[in-house]
């Protein structure tokens, strides 16, 4: 079991909403690892579209992703890409 944690800034113009949010959840669901996303005091399941949307993370906000499981590293790598995408 590996646990990977990373603090990231949401770069996308739309924030973690709309298409980026859907994309994030779709990718998160490809992995077996447990994925948690935190913003301020709010903590949600990264595999849940409701959860991600409820974070209300706009462009520029800081989030913390925690991935736990055997495929944690590759999951983090792909999720990070989405967070770092500007378009």
């Amino acid at each position: 079991m590996t646990t990977v944690k990373k603090k990231l800034i949401v770069k996308n113009k739309q924030g973690l909403h709309a298409r980026p949010a859907a994309l994030f959840v779709q990718i998160a669901n490809k992995f077996d690892s447990r994925i948690t996303v935190r913003r301020d005091d709010e903590e949600v399941n990264g595999k849940s579209i409701m959860g991600i949307l409820m974070l209300g993370a706009e462009q520029g906000s800081q989030i913390m992703i925690e991935v736990e499981g055997h495929d944690a590293e590759s999951a983090m790598e792909e999720l990070e890409k989405i967070i770092n995408q500007e378009e």
Binding site: A22, V44, K47, G51
Partner: peptide, 13 residues
């Protein structure tokens, strides 16, 4: 409707 399908599969919910 893709968004609707995602809601149906939503683990948190």
């Amino acid at each position: 409707f893709d968004a609707h399908l995602l809601v149906l599969e939503d683990r948190m919910l």
